[in-house]
Design a protein around this nucleic acid. Structure first.
Lengths: 257, 257
DNA sequence: CGAGGGGTTGACGTTGTTCAATGAGCGTGG
DNA sequence: CCACGCTCATTGAACAACGTCAACCCCTCG
């Protein structure tokens, strides 16, 4: 497949073989899921689609009838303000159920845009209703997973509202590292991260130039380097400490029920 | 009842007569709720409690077995950073189901603190489970209400990350006005708002001094005045326009299902 | 070869913080 | 009754953080 320009709409329907193993990895980090339950979920997800970097999976205010699970690539929740500035509210990585929020909400208050080429699988809302009715346990797990998104939102409010420049970037990188690790996308303390400096700025409320300066300082402190689409953390403990990063808000430990 | 100092723990168990009408008002703004469904909810909520301004309803990382519905007073979701600075992530007003998030999450990632004297009624998690099993419709409505909180979180990320000083304060006041109006707590374009300038700053990532200066400018523009515990909006259209406020994210319109 | 995306750097202006001092309002105790 | 302590709001001046403008670099791709 050829590369596309940003914004070009390029959907492609693939063969019906959705590998939701990354999603199951992240669920099983918290809950024990039986094979039967996993199959119940997998059975409902056939139709996959591919998007190019910069495409929109969902536009703000659009009514949608299915939710998307990311198989490959990065996406984000975002809104564009009147003056044209984009704010990214959450980064979505493989294994994330990116717009499960739209199931109870019916209409999304924000857009979902890809940050790299992405492959997703669709989970029709009608099927979600069936799963929820069949299995209160899976219903609760799905609800739980949307609540983790809310928790991540809160930590971002904390990050943008209360932390300094270096701290904010360090915190974002710690979060992405931890979440990537859960779905097996890290290599030591390195991981792929397709955001450029402009997009990092859109997450944190910074200009691209300021992101550049802060990254330079973090590099000079020996904490991490951010090269082309890759993050190498040189000193994870130092980075966590600088950021005041406490992964509790990601709810990555085993739940009771 | 005498006044308490901030932080004084003052719980009082009241008579078993919870008036959840404000909660029903806010639900019925979106869904049609039958009397039977309303009764199903009301039957589960007996035990009320009172708190003084500055008390904590829930501490971060605390395991709790019930969720709280605010009957009177204001509260907030907040976290305190290592250097002692508090970030407020959401304002909770009467009719809000303040820690319904803890039902799927079991442990909260943040604290809930009161901003004024508050009266709440408890909804035990065991009863929520029963309601959810009995009525998939109520289950979805409860899920929906937590998703609106997530949407409000996202708008706050947008607010703090992308808007200027005056815009941020204007936006916060627009939100509180709209939400107060739903539960019948406005008087024309005025409403009670027990936050002082320090607490407004904790919502928006500003120092108290800067909030003071921004409020002065908004006053001089003829947009609004914030006196002791009361907001008077002089020019709502002008305020909305300055803030870039679009109430869609509050999901206050009638849903389809 | 040129165009374009991304990164880097410096100078300078704006926004917001910090420190400090002052006043208004309110409840308490003498 | 007044004096006192407390919270909250107000204002000014110095300073730090961050954005804007502009130039330049490197690399990739056509």
């Amino acid at each position: 497949m050829k590369a596309h320009y940003d914004g070009a709409l390029a959907r492609k329907v693939d063969a019906p073989s959705a590998d939701i193993s990354k999603f199951l990895l992240s669920i099983r980090k918290r809950f024990s899921v039986t094979e039967a339950e996993a199959a119940l979920l997998e059975d409902k997800m056939h139709e996959t689609a591919s998007f190019s970097a910069g495409d929109y999976l969902v536009h703000e205010d659009e009514r949608i009838t299915y939710s998307s699970l990311i198989l490959e690539g990065f996406a984000c929740r975002c809104k564009v303000s009147e003056d044209g500035q984009r704010q990214i509210m959450q980064i979505q990585i493989p294994g994330d159920f990116v717009d499960l929020h739209s199931y109870p909400l019916e209409v999304l208050d924000h857009s979902i845009a890809t940050l790299s080429n992405c492959r997703i699988v669709k989970f029709p809302h009608a099927e979600i209703s069936r799963v929820v009715d069949q299995s209160p346990r899976l219903a609760r797990i799905l609800w739980f997973s949307t609540m983790v998104d809310a928790s991540i939102h809160r930590e971002w409010i904390m990050n943008i509202g209360s932390r300094s420049g270096k701290e904010r970037i360090a915190h974002l990188m710690c979060e992405l590292y931890c979440r990537s690790e859960v779905v097996g996308l890290t290599d030591g303390h390195s991981f792929n991260m397709p955001l450029n400096q402009t997009q990092i700025g859109e997450c944190l409320g910074f200009s691209q130039m300021h992101v550049n300066r802060m990254l330079k300082e973090l590099r000079e402190l020996g904490l991490l380097t951010v090269n082309s689409r890759r993050v190498d953390i040189m000193d994870y403990e130092g980075l966590k400490s600088l950021a005041g990063f406490d992964p509790n808000y990601l709810y990555l430990t085993s739940r009771v029920s």
